[in-house]
Design a protein around this nucleic acid. Structure first.
Lengths: 131, 131
DNA sequence: CTTGACCCTGGAGTGCACTCCACACTTATA
DNA sequence: TATAAGTGTGGAGTGCACTCCAGGGTCAAG
């Protein structure tokens, strides 16, 4: 598929796609059949890759980290131990984020409860939900 | 307390603190006693505010959003309904992030399990953990 | 009263992640 | 064959969140 269709499928602006290509995050095929096609061709797996990038971004990774992560992941494709190591690292980091998020949610919920109950006693303190 | 001590207590660089003050995120007192002190004075509640800012940042809010959120929060201080509304919105947003995070974690865990079990069947697909 | 540590303001610079633009080429349609 | 729509490259610009620096004021110690 061409870039405009890829943009539609992924929901990403064309400029952003080109930006990702320049960064090495996406690698569409070029000129498949004897130089007949001067355009970049995107495969279904590129769609998956794009979605993976967006996911990793919402999880707080920078594009540089995502690139490094994915390359390391590819490099360790034949070494299960290395791959597992990379995955474990990601899991650990996400786990930490989740804990901070849980603490924040508990704090917010307790604040809502406190207000709804007519504000008896002192307000819930951020310090009590260490994040 | 003066800015250098505040920096030590919060762990933030002095420049960042001044940046937050310029943005209106922190409001230390100025010249308390008859213009004798030309320096900004930070109170314990400023420390809490700084920690709140950092927390909100890790949760994905921009400084602009944090400012708006905190001002709206202050504005609704006497209207419990408005405050609860703001809190509910925050909770909703964080809940969404948590769900994406959970999906990612489940995906990563299943990938680890799949590798550890000698890679039987097909690899876990990102698509199956909609995020 | 000088020295050194600390403070303030204003403005410039940095890295990241886009976003926009000018210009040139290719391809489908009228 | 003219024209419009889509594609590629290179480079400039934007917004955010800092980060650094010059120039100048304040204050406590010696």
């Amino acid at each position: 598929m061409l870039i405009s269709e890829f943009a539609k499928v992924t929901g990403l602006p064309v400029d952003t796609i080109r930006f990702y290509i320049a960064k090495g995050l996406l690698k569409p095929d070029r000129s498949l059949k004897g130089g007949s096609n001067p355009y970049q061709l995107f495969k279904p797996e590129d769609v998956t890759a794009a979605r993976m990038i967006r996911l990793q971004q919402t999880l707080g990774y920078t594009l540089g980290e995502i690139l490094a992560l994915n390359e390391e992941y590819r490099a360790g494709e034949h070494s299960s131990e290395r791959t597992i190591e990379v995955l474990q690292l990601q899991i650990e980091r996400l786990q930490q984020r989740k804990e901070a998020l849980d603490a924040a949610l508990t704090f917010l919920h307790s604040k809502v409860d406190w207000i709804k109950s007519g504000k008896p006693g002192s307000a819930p303190r951020l310090e009590d939900y260490q994040c």
